[in-house]
Design a protein around this nucleic acid. Sequence first.
RNA 1: GCCCGGGUGGCGGAAUUGGUAGACGCGUCGGAUUCAAAAUCCGAUGGUGGCAACAUCGUGCGGGUUCGAGUCCCGCCCCGGGUACCA
Length: 863
Amino acid sequence: MHAYNPSKIEKKWQSYWLENKTFRTPEDEEKPKYYVLDMFPYPSGDGLHVGHPEGYTATDIVARYKRMNGYNVLHPIGWDAFGLPAEQYAIRTGTHPKQTTERNIGRFREQLQMLGFSYDWDREVNTTDPDYYRWTQWIFLKLYEMGLAYQDEVPVNWCPDLGTVLSNEEVIDGKSEVGGFPVVRKPMRQWMLRITEYADRLLEDLEDLDWPESTKEMQRNWIGRSIGADIEFEIKGHDDSLRVFTTRPDTLFGATYMVLAPEHHLVEELTTNEQRDDVEAYREEAAKKSDIERQEMNKEKTGVFTGSYAINPASGEEIQIWVADYVLAHYGTGAIMAVPGEDERDWEFAEKYGLPIIRTVEPPEDFDGKAWTGEGKSINSGFLDGLEIEEAKLKMIEWLEEQGKGQKSVNYKLRDWLFSRQRYWGEPFPIVHVDGVPKPLPEDVLPVTLPEVDDFKPTRTGEPPLARAKEWVETTDPESGKPALRETNTMPQWAGSCWYYLRYISPEFDGGPVEKKKENYWMPVDLYVGGSEHSVLHLLYARFWHKVLFDCGVVSTDEPFQKLVHQGMILGEMEYTAWRRGGEYLAPDSPKIEEEGVERVRLSETDVEKRGEKFYLKGSDVEVEARAYKMSKSRGNVINPDDIVRQYGADALRLYEMFMGPLEQVKPWSTRGVEGVYRFLNRVWRLMIDEKSGKLHSHLSDEQPTRDQLKALHEAIKKVTEDIDEMRFNTAISALMVFVNEANQWENLPKEVLESFLLILSPFAPHLAEELWSRLGHEKSLAYELWPKAEEDYLKSETVMYPVQVNGKVRGEIHVDADKAKQKELVLEAAKAEKNVSRYLESGELVKEIFVPGKIVNLVVKE
RNA sequence: GCCCGGGUGGCGGAAUUGGUAGACGCGUCGGAUUCAAAAUCCGAUGGUGGCAACAUCGUGCGGGUUCGAGUCCCGCCCCGGGUACCA
């Protein structure tokens, strides 16, 4: 038997590519370059899941395609290997994270090679390698030098039971996501990066990037730039004044009270003796809650009066100053002027505590709601009355500036980046503390490597695990020779991924993170593919670092990633579910399905039928829920790529993942669908190989291809080429299938045609294409063959078909010689003569003729 | 609540600028091959009516523009993702 045997040919070609270094990045700079990048994976213990090959196949297709189009292609891969899972595993088992990481990387590498990706394996980077993090530390020194890294005492989410700080995302309802342990807010000395300094550039430079609009929008929202004014309020009986930020200076006349965040530095001073107990109690209560809890408990606003009064600078009225946790300490100045008439939050608060409300914008006549936040003319606002909001804002700012009571101001939601973690498995900071003062280490002592410790668990006091390495911590300042203590915090996982795309360019270079000349050639990344879950964090942090590196002359572009695409998530297989209690079925939306004794019934596709909008158990009225879920271990719907490759081969997996639908879209897995593309690959095989003899089929010939054959081929070339350019891989594959379906009908197959076909198939199913290519007598890999060009000449057909409509409905079609197809009169003549069309013309009066050359004929007939 | 996506056969999806709605694949049904099955090959496959030719309805719902609307405009509904007291 000589059937298509993917496991055999795939292994063969994978070793061929590795041994011959087929995909080594060219070192010459004569050809145009193309840098195609995947978001590198965190090598988890679970190995690859089917989501990884989705994006990786897409970039691999593009990489292979670009090589065949004469580009020098840089297509690397590496490992984002610092991180919590390896450390948690180390805490549990005592295995050094280095070992876990190494083992996992080995597995990932094997799996990626098994899928036939054309990476340059000589450029692998690993963020945990001291030769790599040496440069992560070097970049940190640059940040420090530029005044962008600083230490600050900030409250963090500290989880004593896990012995670590957690990010906001890792805290749910005041408990740790992992294990459900309590989390407390605790001020700790932390390293911060001044990303806010770059807020404007990060915002403005989004403009020119070829990124998904939604991702750009998320970054814009995250940066959250808003324009307004800072206004100074005098405090009755105090020298201090209160400054607030507002985007609505036009509403100043309606500011009827003020609110300070509980953490505001003036709270204590402004609290009168009668109010002190209440205010203290309120602040204490607020301090206990995490940010997240505060947001959760926001159903009803709370607050207390300080007893002090401020003066509204516009109206001159005395207004009460309150403390309430609906005002955030870290946004603006931590204090607001409250304008209940124009702000829903303030309205709610004012109503609850009986504070005065003044409208300053005329609501529409039929408006009967509370705060009015829409457009309108100013009212009750002295010199602003009658103005529209925008004009009123300008005039108020002008007035404030004249009075010296305020000025135009811009604020950001973006906060500085908390850059340190109390963990072991991360990059050490290149910092020592001499006499308690942090001091950067000189470049030439880098890397500061991780010391060995006997316990990876942080201490209960919050001291990082590195503090246990006494001999490492206690060192001397290489410059002054004084005793010094090393920084024991480590960098967060984002650090290494902020610049890895630069290291690929010159992975061995030891004069800096990247070699200047090569950087100049390869940057920016032309295509970057990865999940949308990194829309803000990774992609914002990396852009920030890149801009810093640009400012200090390390890189030549001000943005790293020119084009960005997110692959959509792959869900588990479609599930049909009914619920039953006793013998009785329950409706899917019944609240009873959560109850005990209710049994879940998994149904197969053949058990259900669709009626109207809903699915039912066949032949019954039992409603069935039909949907696909996220893959998860607990649900048991995880598809393992290894299994798929074993059964159908890597080419089938690659092809299926691209054929499922548009790359960016969320889509459910279907193993049946894999079988479909597997059948297609088999048809390709049998088209050329005689399964009895295992040799080339006898109907392969050296004859000249016919016109029809050339037409079929060049239509496929055209479609596949355009579709790869636009990253529409699903329709490209469909075009390949159409060609094979047609070629299967042919009596003889000119090799010339098949060769071109194999070339356009090769980015998608590289193993099969290489195998058949070599069987056609080629000695070298097809990886650098020239991509075939679609010849317009062959695409022309001898006749042109026109659908003929009567009143916009298709009633027939006509075929016209191609050279006469643009002749209006002739085409209309033929159209009117068509038999099913003519009967409509007989029964009515022809009032209008629409002729769209090459497209359609429409005849408008009246009654 | 707000901001983005998206609703097309039994299913995944196609229709590139307003021009034959349903390419390609899955599934289903029928046939060929086979002792039988798997595999393979051929054919049919949106609904309804009809022996058929054909007609009619049909792209979430309701309107509109147009010779012609899945595609454009107005008003809704539903689903997915993000975000949330940011003054």
